[in-house]
Design a binder for these strands. Sequence first.
DNA 1: CGTTTGCTTGACAGCATTCAACGTTGGTGG
DNA 2: CCACCAACGTTGAATGCTGTCAAGCAAACG
Lengths: 238, 238
Amino acid sequence: MKLDAMRAACSKCNLRELCLPMGLTDADLQHIDRLVGARRSLRRGDALFCAGEPFESIFAVRSGFFKTRVSVDDGRERVTGFQMAGELLGLDGISAERHTCDAIALEDSEVCVIGYSRLEEVSRDVLGLQRQFHRVLSREIVREQGVMLLLGGVRAEARLAAFLLNLGERLRSRGFSGSSMVLRMTREEIGSYLGIKLETVSRAFSRFQEESLLEVRQRNVRVVDEAGLRRLAFEAPG
Amino acid sequence: MKLDAMRAACSKCNLRELCLPMGLTDADLQHIDRLVGARRSLRRGDALFCAGEPFESIFAVRSGFFKTRVSVDDGRERVTGFQMAGELLGLDGISAERHTCDAIALEDSEVCVIGYSRLEEVSRDVLGLQRQFHRVLSREIVREQGVMLLLGGVRAEARLAAFLLNLGERLRSRGFSGSSMVLRMTREEIGSYLGIKLETVSRAFSRFQEESLLEVRQRNVRVVDEAGLRRLAFEAPG
DNA sequence: CGTTTGCTTGACAGCATTCAACGTTGGTGG
DNA sequence: CCACCAACGTTGAATGCTGTCAAGCAAACG
């Protein structure tokens, strides 16, 4: 977990259309290059931050893959999200000025460190940034609402189908295949995120394969019948 | 659903310590009186806004009680939250500049209309407001994370117990009893929010009464054994 | 006073969990 | 290079919680 002295420039970053600077004008882009203090590299398994730590920065995933999790009572953990390149980590820490979850790298990763007081300062000057930051916060609210609907409303197989479709979309918008993917997380982590047990995840994968919706070999997943998967994800419960 | 010409002054509002102005200095308070454009009154059953409508304002509950809901596919609805005095509505609309849910008054209510562009403008001048608004957005993210944990991790009875405790806390911080409350929503709405069926909600209430955790008569609920309820809410699943 | 809406309760079915055993993969060290 | 171990994944059988369907009751409303 080393600190990279090199400052990152959003204006030259090829993730700028996915990340915080999304939609900003070129002029605004110039102004926000002072936002990112440094990059930070993490090895697989490293914690970017932990619940309870003072909140000072948010983080943008530059490369790699993360999970966020909370520990409930007796050591059990629950995964609250997965983050890939261009997505932000730490937004939940703003409210109480302490992080409320752990962020763990699921593979070797790199993040941009965005000092929060700096962000507040710059977003007063740069209207586009203020607007965009609010959008990002709001989008996270909407995303979680979607997860709530999933967790509360639909059966295990539909949850997994929706999860895979969502993962595919996010990969696709990053220029990857979207139908052929390598999962970075274990069955247990998927299950924890979706509110089901790892055995149930495994069974759902097997059944999807039987029904020719997917080809699954361990963490390699290929979506064979996306329409079928989509039908399953949106079906009525029961 | 009428528009009240009288402008509301946050600086004189007795909800200011619960609402958006929470924690602001007296000096800042003066500056944000221009925030609230008008009040709006709603009758029970009225929609404050609906999913898909253009987003222009957020709303602060001045009095009364609301639910937010989304309609999934074929007319079924899912409740995504309940809001009482001092809480904000419409934050999810920022991301796409359209509301993503319906907000329905569960009793005759009044809200303060906060124009969003005005809010952005003022929060550039008033540092405390900028900070507080970010906190509010972040708090909503954290709140939803809590619901996700509930929905994904625990049994029906634990969900209801946690729900009642949360409701009690919020009532208490508004000067009400917290242990003796009148529910403003139906069993079906509670169930929809908690991801369980209304029959299950009803059974859980009955069982809580058998076990002397609650006294329930229709929508009148009295918490008899708060510690016991808390134990139930945090217990391991299964 | 009747109708509508909301609430309670019972019986049964179904899906997910639990417990358990076994298979696979990848890394380590002999 | 192979053996071995640990972590991860798959599958089966039994249990149990929650959903479904149905009936009856209570409260609210006009």
